[in-house]
């Protein structure tokens, strides 16, 4: 019936719990399997477990009809898909953070370390601030500590990592949560089924 792309890890487990609540059996997905394609024979639903940042790609190419993906990734890659529901899972925020003693020198461009290049660019363009982006792929917090950047733009859930590294949140850019997305063409041909799923899910989120 459907092909669903799920992000490997915690978000997949949480999504499976939601699906279970609306009567879709996801036992095989939650078990610690190394299989990448899991098919539930009863419902005909096929699950793909993929890297979180790749979910939108699988959906955009249409091999998955629908998928679950963080809003941060949608903002960053801007895929041409329908965003049908806020699943209210994996809630966090994209923030600007800097050292506890951060003081902004407005005479020169701000150096921003981040893995979210587009979100950072859009945000600073919206407040007319000139920046220099330093693209990193992990341990972003290290950049201001070593004075490689002035600030970072990163995801924050509880703020513990920031605190442990003597960093603080300077501005909140946007709240993030997991979204249910659908391929535009597949949606036209499976509209009734997808809408039914969305309606059921919206009752339990």
């Amino acid at each position: 019936m459907f092909n669903i792309a799920l992000p490997k890890g915690r978000l997949a487990d949480k999504t499976c719990k939601l699906l279970k609540q609306i009567g879709i059996n996801t036992d095989e997905v939650t078990s610690d399997s190394r299989q990448l394609v899991i098919k539930d024979e009863k419902t005909g639903i096929q699950y793909f477990l993929v890297k979180p940042s790749d979910v939108a790609i699988y959906v955009e190419y249409g091999v998955a009809d629908i998928g679950v993906v963080g809003k941060d990734i949608l903002l960053e890659s801007n895929p041409d898909v329908y965003e049908l529901l806020d699943l209210q899972l994996g809630k966090c925020k994209v923030v600007v953070a800097g050292r506890e003693d951060f003081y902004e020198d407005k005479e020169r461009p701000l150096r921003v370390a981040t893995k979210f290049v587009n979100i950072a660019k859009d945000y600073y363009a919206s407040i007319n601030r000139e920046i220099e982006i330093i693209k990193l792929n992990g341990s972003i917090e290290l950049a201001p500590i070593l004075n490689m950047s002035d600030v970072i733009v990163d995801l924050v859930e509880t703020g513990t990592t920031l605190k442990e590294n003597k960093l603080k949140v300077l501005t909140e850019i946007i709240p993030i949560s997991a979204r249910l997305i659908a391929n535009k063409a597949k949606y036209k041909f499976k509209e009734a089924e997808i809408n039914e799923l969305v309606a059921k899910l919206s009752e339990v989120v």
Binding site: E60, Y61, G62, D80, N183, K184, A185, F189
Partner: peptide, 9 residues
């Protein structure tokens, strides 16, 4: 316009 096998318009 969309056709069954192609994932984009």
């Amino acid at each position: 316009g969309y056709v069954k096998k192609i994932p984009t318009a």
